[in-house]
Amino acid sequence: MSSAASSSKMLQLPLSKEDLTRINAHLRTLTPEDILAWAVESLPGLYQTTAFGLTGLVAIDMLSKITSSPPPLIFLDTLYHFQETYELVEEVRQRYDVPIHIYTPQGCATVADFEKKFGGRLWETNEDVYDFAVKVEPARRAYDALGVKAIITGRRATQGGDRASLQPLEVDETGLLKLNPLFEWTFPFVEWYIEENNVPRNKLLDQGYRSVGDWHSTSKVGEGQSERAGRWAGKEKTECGLHRNFFTMQEQLEKASEFPLSVSSPVSIRA
């Protein structure tokens, strides 16, 4: 473990803007492995949220080599993932000794349950409600139930869109800490690590996909296109809702939605 990590003390929350600026200046000098080692030593209530994309898998593999007790994983099962994604979840479970907490939309264990509650093809009829129901609400429920105060993400600046200005450590509008350990890595570097370390990967990546989400909003990527061009193709959308402003999204949906939307209180990370 790096000296930076071993000498760190658990952070006291909430962080001031000055603290965050100082921490990011330090983290920018570290490798992803050292950023993760620092996080294990320094961030309270640390979990990794993952849809088992390549960058998240790199972090899982790195953490397995850094600590014998890696942060538990949170997988938000939208119920509309590809079968290959569910197979990968089981492969990761077998390969790495790390707990996986799986959360589905509230009150729904199957697609039939979800469509009985919201109707069919909700991602077309009300995309914001869909994002809230399958990602935002389950995430907040997970954070409440598990006592999550900080999460590790697989976001990278080179993915573009809203991610272009990523910092190593961010604090969202609810006070949740978000660590982006591979924020500076490019897609080829991520692929190199996966191959070099024989990390499990989604079989769809061998079929022309580069970023895999729900089956209805994921398509293959053409030559020369960005890695996330196959997510919500033809739309300006770049995020599923999990990294959008929680309060703004909740307020808009409460005003406009015909569906009942409930969510746990935003996570509190005051010490």
Score class of each variant (00 low, 15 high):
264 S>Y: 08
145 A>S: 13
220 K>V: 03
67 T>M: 10
6 S>V: 13
19 D>I: 04
55 T>F: 09
231 R>A: 02
30 L>T: 03
206 D>I: 09
117 K>Q: 13
101 H>L: 04
212 V>C: 07
9 K>R: 14
240 C>G: 04
34 D>S: 14
267 V>Q: 13
178 K>H: 08
135 K>Y: 12
25 A>Y: 10
128 D>F: 05
15 L>M: 09
259 F>K: 03
139 A>Y: 11
98 V>F: 02
214 D>V: 01
164 A>L: 05
264 S>A: 15
131 D>Q: 12
167 Q>L: 15
24 N>F: 01
110 T>V: 07
40 V>A: 12
184 E>V: 09
47 Y>P: 02
83 Q>G: 15
162 D>Q: 13
38 W>D: 00
262 S>L: 13
207 Q>I: 10
10 M>W: 01
57 L>S: 15
2 S>V: 11
151 I>R: 09
197 N>S: 05
67 T>Q: 09
113 D>C: 00
136 V>E: 07
234 G>Y: 01
129 V>Y: 04
175 G>L: 04
138 P>Y: 02
61 D>M: 06
149 K>H: 09
202 N>I: 11
260 P>D: 08
142 A>R: 04
204 L>M: 14
249 M>K: 04
53 G>E: 10
65 K>Y: 03
155 R>C: 10
72 P>A: 09
10 M>K: 14
